[in-house]
Design a protein around this nucleic acid. Sequence first.
DNA 1: ATGTGTCTGTATAACGTTGTAAAACATGCT
DNA 2: AGCATGTTTTACAACGTTATACAGACACAT
Lengths: 338, 338
Amino acid sequence: MGASLKDVAQLAGVSVKTVSNVVNNYPHVTPGMRERVQRAIDELGYRPNLTARHLRKGRTGIIALAVPELGNPYFAELAGAVIDAAARHDYTVLLDHTAGQREREVLVTQGFRAHVIDGLILSPIELETSDLLGRRDDAPLVLLGEREYEAPYDQIAIDNVAAARTAVRHLSGLGRRRIAFIGARREMARRPAHLRLRGWREELTAAGLPCDESLVAATDGYGRWDGAAAMNALLDRGERPDAVFAYNDLMALGAMRALVERGVRVPQDVSVVGFDDVEEGRFSTVALTTVAPDKQAIARLAVERVVARLTGDRQVEAERIQPGYTLVARESTAAPGA
Amino acid sequence: MGASLKDVAQLAGVSVKTVSNVVNNYPHVTPGMRERVQRAIDELGYRPNLTARHLRKGRTGIIALAVPELGNPYFAELAGAVIDAAARHDYTVLLDHTAGQREREVLVTQGFRAHVIDGLILSPIELETSDLLGRRDDAPLVLLGEREYEAPYDQIAIDNVAAARTAVRHLSGLGRRRIAFIGARREMARRPAHLRLRGWREELTAAGLPCDESLVAATDGYGRWDGAAAMNALLDRGERPDAVFAYNDLMALGAMRALVERGVRVPQDVSVVGFDDVEEGRFSTVALTTVAPDKQAIARLAVERVVARLTGDRQVEAERIQPGYTLVARESTAAPGA
DNA sequence: ATGTGTCTGTATAACGTTGTAAAACATGCT
DNA sequence: AGCATGTTTTACAACGTTATACAGACACAT
C-alpha cells in the first residue's frame, strides 16, 4: 500500500504535521527541514490521500455534471467546456449521465453522491418542478437546458423561445410557407413546456402563416433515428412541408438523411434548420443551418455560479441567466427552388 | 450541514455502530430497533458520508476513464459503454480528458487522483513506454487504443493491423488502385508506431499495388478539420487517388466534405473508408463505410480487467486482449465509376 | 444453580489528513 | 542574565465511517 504521512514522518524523524506542512508548502518551514522531509517523501514515493483530505476539509473540489446522453455531441462539447471552465477554478468534473430518465435525474438531485461532490450542474429532460421542491441535499445546484422550473435554483439557458423564433423567421424570410417542427415529445406536444415549440407557434402566428398542428412531428427521443423517423412521418402525411425546424442538430441531420433517401432536395425542396451547432453539422455534405447557443458562456456561467455559492454568500437569490446565441446560416436553407 | 451517524444515534438513543448496522442492512438487528433507528434517520434526513466511508474502507468504487477528446464521438460512445459496464459491477466512472497531451497522460498514469480512484482505464495518444515503466501508483491500469506498449499492463485493442488490412482489401477488391492513407501524425509517419498505417502498407504490398509514400497524408490532429485539410493536400498533390482509407471516421467525414466541395463524387470517383463506426457515419448523406470495433466488448473487457485486479489476484500476468471488429460496407465505397 | 452458547448491542480504535494551541527554540533588547 | 518577541515544530483532537472485541441478555441443557 501507499505510504502515509506517518510513514514519512517516521523515516524523516519529524512530526506528522511537519510533513503535512512541507506537502502543502506551508511557508514557515526552514529550508533544511524542508529538504530532509522532501527526501523522505521521495524515497517512499508518498502521495497524499485525497480521500482523507476531503474528509478533513469537508470539500472535495469535485463538481458533477449530469447530462442525458454523451452520445449527443452537444453534450460532449458542452462537457468539454465545463471541464475547462471548472479547471480554471481548480475544480474537477465528475460526469454523470441520466439517460434522460426522471428517476435518475431525481436521484442525482437528491445527492446520491452525498459529500463526494461539492456542487452539481444538471441538464434535465424529464425532471419536474415538484421533484426539486423536496430537495434536501445542500450542495449547490445549477440547472441547464430548455425547460424552466419554478424552484429556487439558478437556471442557465439561452432564451429558447426567442431563439426558436429567430430560426423560424429565417425560414419564413426565405419565402417558406409550410414550416414543420420536429421534436416535440409525444406527451409534451400539448403542454407549453417545450419552449422551442412555443417559439415556433409564436413566430408562425406573427408571420401570418398557418400554424397547422399536422406540421408538428412528435418523437420518442432526441437522436438521429428519431429525426429521420419524424421526417418520414411528415412526408407520408400528405401535403409536404417546404421547411423543417428541428429541436436539435442531431434530429435535423437525421431528417436530412431521410429527405435525401427519398429524393427530396435540400435546401431547394425542403430547407432544414437545427439547434445546437454541433461540429458535425458544419461537415455534413449539405452543411446545416443552425441556432448556435454560446456553449462557452453557458459552461462558464454554470461553473461560476456553483463556485460562487460554494465560496461565499449562498443566500443570494436564485437567478435565471440567459447567455447569447446566434443563427448560423449554412447550406441547408435557401429560397424555394433556388 | 448534513446529519451524521452520531446525530442519528443521539436522537434514537442508541450507539453509533447500531445506526451504521441499520444503514448497511447488517442482519442481526431486531425489527423494533431497526424501526426506531430508521425513524431517526428519516427525521434527520441522514445521508451517509461517502468520503468517510471511502477513507475507512480504502476503496471508493470509482474507476477513472481517461480519453483524449470527448468531442470525438468514438470516445463519447465508448465512454457510455464503459459507464454501463462499470455500473454492472457497482462501480462509478470518473471521466477525464487528456487532450491527447503526453504530459496530462503521464499525470493521469502517476495517479494524481491518488486514492480517490480504485482503477484506471486510459486511452493514450502520446504516451511512451518509458513513461509507464516508472509508474509507482498501485491502482490497476488498463490501456486502450491503437498503440502497443512494452509494459506490464493489460492492453485491450482490436488487431489494428489486420483491421486496416481488411479495409484496404475491401478497396482493392472493388478495383481501386491508388489508395491513399489519411491520418499519420507528422512525426510518426516514418515510425512503425501507427498500426493502421502499417496495415495499409502491408496490404498494398500483398495486393501488388504501389505503396507510394506520396499517398500518405500526415495530419496534426484527429478531427474533421484535419481530415479535410489532408484530403485537400492530397488533391493538390498531382495524380488523384481513387480511394482513401482514413485513420478514423471523423477524418473520413472531413475528407468526404472536402471532396464534395471540390466536385469530386463519392463513391464513384473516390471511395472512402473510415474507422470507428460512429453513429454519425451512418447518417451522413453518403453513408460511410467503416471498420467497426466492438465497442461493447472493449468496454466490458476493460472494466472486467480492472475489477478482476481489484478483487483478486493482482499478480496474474498482464495480457493483450483483442476484441472483435467488422467491416461495415455502406455507400461511400463502390467500384470505380459505378 | 451453573455452565455453554447464541443473539443483540456497545465502546473503542482505527483510516490519513489538517486546524488549533501550545511547546521549543532562536533572537534582540534592557 | 532575564525577558519579551517572533519563528519553527510538535502533540492532539477532530472529520464520519466501519471492524474488532467485548458485554449483557436470554435460552437451554446439565
